[in-house]
Structures are given as structure tokens and as C-alpha cells.
Amino acid sequence: MSDALADWKPDVLGVEGQVLPVVTAPAGVLSSAGAEVDPADPAIVQLAADLVATMRVSPGCVGLAAPQVGVGAQVFVVDVTEHPKTVTAHGTFVLCNARVVEASRWRPGREGCMSVPDLTGDVKRAGRVVVEAVLPGTGEPVRLTTDAFEARALQHEIDHCAGKLFLDRVAGAHAVYQRKVYL
């Protein structure tokens, strides 16, 4: 992990995040590749803060990408710290223009998504990834190595930024399930 990511906390953005509405499929922004961003742009810094704020008020949410709040941009937040499947966790972080540069240990796992609220699906993803990106605000490049559930969450959010939903990655209709509702 880059020292820059270890030192990065949402408050370094210096702006208050606003909770934004989450868009659901079939909204067009969810199936269009987001644009690369200038991480120093004040609008991107605000978007980063908004993504953190929105994720924090959304029960069970471990990641949220800009397209999910209606913005076609390559920006997302992840925080798997409190999730029971977590092995490795780097806390709350926002990445811009992220790319998977290494992937290994592929395995299937169940995924859900706030933008597809009624379904879950089995998706094969790398269990270990190396991601390169830049941090909002500073524009500092980072290289993040992670595994297990955090690796899955990163790939899920990077997919959102590329215009893909987890449903685009399932093996077929047999791997899609109605989401269980707990009362």
C-alpha cells in the first residue's frame, strides 16, 4: 500500500459531503463508461465527499461509484471495515481513474448492489488484486494491493466506472437470485 493511501482520510477533502440519491437500473449512466477525471478539480473533490457521505448512510453499503449517483465519472469510495467477510481492510478511501493492473486467485462469490436492489448474483472475481489510481484532492498516485472481500469490492466499483453492473458478469440466469429481505 502506498503511504499516500495510509495517510488519506475523508476529512482531507476539506468539504462537507452531501447525501445524494442512488440511481437504479436501467438508468443509462449505469451502462456508460465514466470519464477519467482531474482529481484536483473542486467538483471531483466535492463528488468524493458526497460519495463518502452517501455510503455512510446506506445500510450494508461497502462501496459506491459516481455512476450510482448519476455522475459519469471514474470516482468511487470503498470501506469494507465492518463487513463480516473482510480479511484485509484499508479503511475508507476514494479512488479516481482506478485500474486493476494485476489479478489472481479467481473465485465465485455472491454480490449485491444498491443500483440493483432486488437481486444478487454469483460473480467470478479475482481474490487478489493490485490497483493503480489517484487520490482526490491531492492527485497523488497510489498502488493498492489487497485480497478477499476488499478485492471484490474494488473490482465491483471499477466495473461501475466502466459502465458494467454485476449482472453483466454473472454466468447466466441460473446465477441470479431474488434478494432476501430481513424484517
Score class of each variant (00 low, 15 high):
Ser2Phe: 08
Ser2Cys: 07
Leu5Arg: 15
Asp7Glu: 15
Trp8Gln: 02
Trp8Phe: 15
Lys9Tyr: 15
Pro10Gln: 06
Leu13Gln: 07
Gly14Cys: 13
Gly17Ala: 14
Gly17Leu: 13
Val22Leu: 14
Thr24Gly: 02
Pro26Thr: 12
Gly28Gln: 12
Leu30Arg: 01
Leu30Lys: 00
Ser31Pro: 10
Ser31Gln: 15
Val37Ser: 08
Pro39Ala: 09
Ala40Arg: 15
Ala40Met: 12
Asp41Phe: 11
Pro42Tyr: 01
Ala49Gln: 03
Asp50Ala: 13
Leu51Ser: 12
Met55Phe: 00
Gly60Ala: 04
Gly60Lys: 12
Val62Ile: 13
Gly63Met: 02
Ala65Ile: 02
Gln68Met: 03
Val71Trp: 08
Val71Tyr: 05
Val71Glu: 14
Gln74Cys: 13
Gln74Asn: 03
Gln74His: 10
Val75Ser: 09
Phe76Gly: 00
Asp79Gln: 06
Thr81Ser: 15
Glu82Met: 05
Lys85Ile: 05
Val87Phe: 15
Thr88Asp: 14
Val94Met: 11
Cys96Met: 13
Ala98Cys: 05
Ala98His: 10
Arg99His: 09
Val101His: 06
Val101Leu: 08
Arg105Cys: 00
Trp106Gln: 04
Pro108Ile: 01
Gly109Gln: 00
Gly109Ile: 01
Arg110Tyr: 06
Glu111Val: 03
Val116Gln: 10
Pro117Glu: 09
Thr120Leu: 07
Gly121Gln: 07
Asp122Ala: 05
Lys124Tyr: 05
Arg125Trp: 03
Ala126Tyr: 04
Gly127Trp: 04
Val129Arg: 08
Val130Gln: 09
Ala133Asn: 00
Val134Cys: 10
Gly139Glu: 10
Pro141Trp: 01
Thr145Glu: 15
Asp147Gln: 03
Asp147Trp: 02
Asp147Asn: 10
Asp147Val: 11
Gln155Arg: 00
Glu157Gln: 09
His160Tyr: 03
Asp168Cys: 05
Gly172Val: 03
Ala173Asp: 14
His174Lys: 15
Gln178Glu: 14
Arg179Val: 08
Tyr182Pro: 01
